[in-house]
Amino acid sequence: MHAIEAIAISKKFGDLLALSDVNFFVAEGETFGFLGPNGAGKTTTIRILTGITMPTAGTAMIFEKDIVKETIAARRQMGIVHETSNVYDDLSAWHNLMFAAELYNVPRSVRERRGKELLELFGLWERKDDRVRVFSKGMKRRLTLAMGLVNDPRLLFLDEPTSGLDVQSNLIIRDVIHDLTEQGVTVFLTTHNIEEANLICDRVAIINRGQIAAIDSPERLKKTIQSVQSVEVAFDPPSLDRLNRLRALPLVSEVRKEGDKFRLITEDPATVIEGVTAYAQEHQVRIISMTTIGPSLEDVFIKLTGLVPRVKGVKVID
């Protein structure tokens, strides 16, 4: 049984076509990432899948229940973590959590036990009686996640779960998702964080301007652009002036400066390594490190969404 089946979903806001014929499925137990730039339609997709917004055309099945026609039955199985940390500022963390549980009819004894577990898990137990108004952004985000889990959902929607979180909170959340997956919970998450999608998703859909550009596992997506490999090199002394010289090396299609390193995109890493070595000898600079890397999910993303990397003077991968 599929946890989610999106069937020819389109959504119009006035004249704007926010989603156009979106089709995909998510298998039960899968962690599915929805990756796309701002305004691509990620949140709109989640709002349709959770029955908050009506699709203009098409529908979605949640565990074989039609979200448009059997909305309540479909929703009973889901937990939702909305894009904004939508907590009640004037309620305590505890009352927020209990309210979320009551909306899902979680019995008192269960919700109190579960509530304690979750607040401890997200490091908020000591602050449970504080009004959420005084919470930091990250604390509110963690509380929002706890609220999404309080009904023990079989399918969890996460709309940019880690945006605005520090490394530690990020790790907690990644751990939580990992544990959920082990328990067989299906996770649907949206993100613009490519590394996050790469790390935790079984499959990823790349969406751009309301259309699905590709759906596959991160590794297989990378394979589709095997022609895009790169050599990453760091010099001593580091200097920006090298950009044009490196660009002139044979078979280098593009050079990006990434931190203190240069990334040379090529179809033929071996030749580029020779070229870089010769360049270093000629100019009497030392090579501190040199690595060849395969295509990253970011490369796939850039290629499929046609985005121009925002580094001056760098051309787009065609």
Partner: peptide
């Protein structure tokens, strides 16, 4: 995943949720 529907039909769930919504406003406003 737990099904919390036992012992309470849909109508009863609806009323309990409505009461939860009311309680939240009472606490806040």
């Amino acid at each position: 995943m737990t099904d919390f529907s036992e012992g309470c039909g849909q109508l009863c769930r609806e009323l309990k949720a409505a009461w939860a919504i009311a309680k939240k406003d009472i606490r806040i406003y």
